[in-house]
Amino acid sequence: MTPGAIVRLAILILLLAFLLAPQSFAPVFAPLTRFGAPPIYNQGSLLDITLSHLWITFLATLASTIVAVGLSILVTRPFGKEFLSLSRSLANVGQTFPPVAVLALAVPVLGFGTEPTLIALFLYGLLPIFENALTGLTNVPRDVDEAARGMGMTGWQRLVGVELPLALPVILSGIRVAAVISLATATIGSTVAARTLGEVIIAGLTTSNTAFVLQGGLIVGILAVLLSDALSALERLLARRAGLTRRAEA
């Protein structure tokens, strides 16, 4: 095990310990409070809020993945080719929209609660996944595609057997970006009444309780870093499996 992996594991264990028994960490956070304010968030179970946060992130990312990969397949088939360059520039332009703005604009249309957050996360998550899936599906090496057609693979066989497996690491990289953005934007979602860790931070800000702010910030920050690391590791594994790493080095 590398030192990095040991540190990550230790942090994960610490995080789990804090979520399962937050009160035992009260002495650590007590110095940050003033006028006898509670050192540990007391308006709900931190564990429940964390799980709800992760669940929203997961659902949104899953939905984005299914729809974005589906769309990217459509526009890279012969009958959808006409939409390829337009959809590519739309995905590009779309990503200049700040995720917060997407969330803010979703509220007038969808109202308050978890749903608008979920839908905003879903919509925003489409963009990086779609863009990466397009890159992956259109960058299959020419000779490989040529050989696949020359051997008599049908369009469907090429998609499933060649294009998607080769694009998988790039698609996963898009999923990682989308998941990290979703996790971050879900935090803001608490301002529109979604049940996420943002409410811990915002409760801390409104009551000037730095301990709350720190708790919320640490949990979200650690989750984001661990999630991103885990997905990066998976990405590297898949790239190696797909025989792409060595090929690139050669």
Partner: peptide, 22 residues
Amino acid sequence: PAHQLRRQIGYAIQGHGLFPHR
């Protein structure tokens, strides 16, 4: 159909076009 025809005919190209993931 073209794909059936191609399965009866061997095809080798420059740069070999091997599937890197297989």
